[in-house]
């Protein structure tokens, strides 16, 4: 589904990703771990299409297409979703309308009719239950005045509504208490099918107790330096990242 080869990325002439390669297939969950400042969020942003970075070399192929040539909205319409580490506040735009607009834009791209109001609201009710968010929240402006936990749950809620093929969750677990963490995990697990894939970026092994990854990658100084199964996460938790330097 996603194939990244020898990707080098810089910002303001500072190299962040230094030859990163990653293969993700449908049905898989990949966890990416690593210390601060090693390029985890940059990787997430590059896949979603943030244009503040320079791609110096390498390639990113998604479903056989050159992802780097696609506009962010086209990537979204083609099934990519980024759960933001810091979700942006958009005063004056209600979650309900934001999502309905997004959903219809995506449907238009795929040649589908707009979703009817009835279907949309039914779907919203279902997904709200899944991530346990209050009814009132969806009438409020996107992320405006939300607590940290509400913002992250709102990301998972949007993911549940949009049903992406490839979802990247950028430190969705940071700042969450254990209950919220479980809700996030429940969201991911219930959406998991053999046709979609997840890339879960996290600092802590804790999240991986609830979302069981097929692969754990360690990103260190702009490269994936180690790949293993879920037991690698335990090893990292125990030994810390210092262990990798040797």
């Amino acid at each position: 589904m996603l194939s990244i080869k020898n990707l080098k990325v810089s910002i303001n002439e500072k190299e962040i990703l230094k030859g990163l390669s990653l293969e993700v297939n449908a049905g898989e969950i990949h966890a990416i771990m690593g210390p601060n400042g090693t390029g985890k969020s940059t990787l997430a942003s590059i896949i979603a299409g943030r244009d503040i970075f320079n791609v110096d070399s390498g390639e990113v192929i998604y479903k056989g297409k050159n992802l780097l040539e696609m506009a962010p909205e086209v990537r979204a319409c083609d099934g990519i979703f980024l759960g933001f580490q810091y979700p942006v506040e958009i005063p004056g735009v209600s979650i309900t309308n934001f999502l309905r607009t997004a959903m219809n834009e995506q449907r238009k791209y795929r040649g589908l009719e707009p979703i009817t109001a009835k279907e949309f609201f039914a779907k919203m009710e279902e997904k709200k239950k899944l991530v346990e968010i209050h009814s009132k929240l969806t009438n409020r402006s996107v992320n405006e005045g939300f607590s940290g936990g509400e913002k992250k749950k709102n990301e998972i809620f949007q993911m549940a509504m949009l049903e992406p093929e490839l979802a990247i969750l950028d430190e969705t677990d940071s700042g969450l208490d254990i209950d919220a963490l479980k809700i996030v995990a429940k969201g991911v697990n219930s959406l998991r099918t053999e046709n979609n894939a997840f890339i879960v970026i996290t600092h802590y092994q804790r999240l991986l107790d609830y979302i069981v990854p097929d692969f754990v990658h360690v990103l260190y100084e702009g490269k994936i330096v180690k790949t293993g199964g879920k037991e690698l996460a335990f090893e990292l938790e125990e030994k810390g990242y210092e262990w990798l330097k040797n």
Partner: peptide, 11 residues
């Protein structure tokens, strides 16, 4: 905010 909105599929 523009990127956030676009990343959900809105042109």
């Amino acid at each position: 905010a523009l990127f956030y909105i676009r990343s959900r599929g809105i042109e």
